[in-house]
Amino acid sequence: MSAKPLKKAVLPVAGLGTRFLPATKSMPKEMLTVVDRPLIQYAVDEARAAGIEQFCMVSGRGKTALIDHFDVSYELEATLRERGKLEALEQLHRDRLQPGSISTVRQQEPMGLGHAIWCARTFIGDDPFAILLPDDLVLSDTPCMTQLAQAYKETEGSVVAVVEVPRDQTNRYGILKTGHDDGKLVEVTGLVEKPKPEVAPSNLSIIGRYVLMPEVIGHLSKMERGAGNEVQLTDAMAKMIGHSPFHGLRFEGERFDCGDKVGFLEAQIAFSLSRPDLAPEVRAFLKKYTG
């Protein structure tokens, strides 16, 4: 029996973005731009490239700009048309989502990533679903979620994107306990949220890209608190192991933590240099400032 098609994605976007204050005082952190596109647009584009058609944003108060971004802006489009800026107009049309393809739910209390995913339980239903954290930006030839979707088809089970982190940083991430490892796809035999370096089962860390089976919602529904006294997605995923296939994927590409100021600035440079229209001038001014 083949796996169900992957058509749904959950985007947890309820965070306050306090590390980027005052920029995020009146603007959602997911609307911060890397080059000329907001983080939320990168996440949605990556999901669409993987064949995903339905989106649920788990949001909070003051985040309506995220939905407005994907709405039709009649006045702007009319102005662009009148001024002959057809290339910009076409870009807006490409970015637009199909009517009815995006919904939102409120995470009324900040109870952790697991709680945010649980809030989307009605949207998820009985279907496999992707999770994309917009803070994590991946630069790659093949979009990271496309790679995960292919691994899901092959394994017919849950798959998470993983990277190796320094051993002394395991207490910042969800860490894998590993089984068979072919160098790309690694069997997950256990998961630990933010373990101390001396007891971490490996240095393979989950980043903000997941494909999960809907059974995870049943575990999240118990509202068990973990690290930080929050409902941890990692803890719920750990309970799925052994009942259905679960793998980590060493994806091809470079991940940037855009929830961190240095990571955000590094992403600006990397994505600028990946653009043929910008790379020559960016290299020139980098030389100016770096010698």
Rank of each mutant, 00 (worst) to 15 (best):
K222E: 15
R225T: 13
L204T: 05
P214S: 10
L204V: 02
I217G: 03
N229A: 15
L212I: 02
H219W: 13
V188D: 03
K194L: 05
E224S: 10
K196C: 00
V188T: 07
A227L: 12
S205Q: 06
I207T: 10
S221W: 13
G218E: 12
A200I: 05
Y210R: 14
T189P: 02
K196N: 03
V188R: 06
P195N: 00
L212V: 02
R209E: 11
N229F: 14
I217A: 02
P214Y: 09
M213W: 09
P201E: 06
G190I: 03
E198F: 02
K222I: 09
V216H: 04
P214G: 08
I217Q: 03
V192A: 06
L191E: 07
I206C: 09
P214K: 01
E224A: 10
N229V: 11
P195G: 00
G190A: 06
V192D: 05
G190R: 04
L204K: 03
S202H: 06
P201L: 08
Y210L: 11
L191W: 05
N203D: 13
L191G: 02
N203E: 12
K222C: 10
M223A: 11
M223K: 14
G208C: 08
R225C: 10
G218D: 14
V216W: 01
M223I: 11
G226I: 10
N203G: 06
R209W: 15
R209Q: 12
N203C: 15
I207F: 11
A200T: 04
R225E: 12
G190C: 07
V192Y: 07
E215R: 12
N229W: 11
A227I: 14
E187Y: 04
G190K: 05
A200Y: 03
V216K: 01
A200D: 06
K222G: 05
A227D: 14
P201Y: 03
S202V: 06
E193Q: 13
R225V: 12
P197L: 09
L220K: 01
G208P: 07
P195L: 00
M213T: 13
S205L: 09
N229H: 14
S221M: 14
V199T: 12
M213L: 15
K222M: 12
S221A: 15
K222R: 15
T189C: 12
V188I: 15
V216D: 05
G190P: 00
M223P: 05
L212R: 03
I217C: 01
P214R: 07
V192I: 10
L204A: 04
P197H: 01
K196D: 04
P214D: 09
P214N: 07
E215I: 00
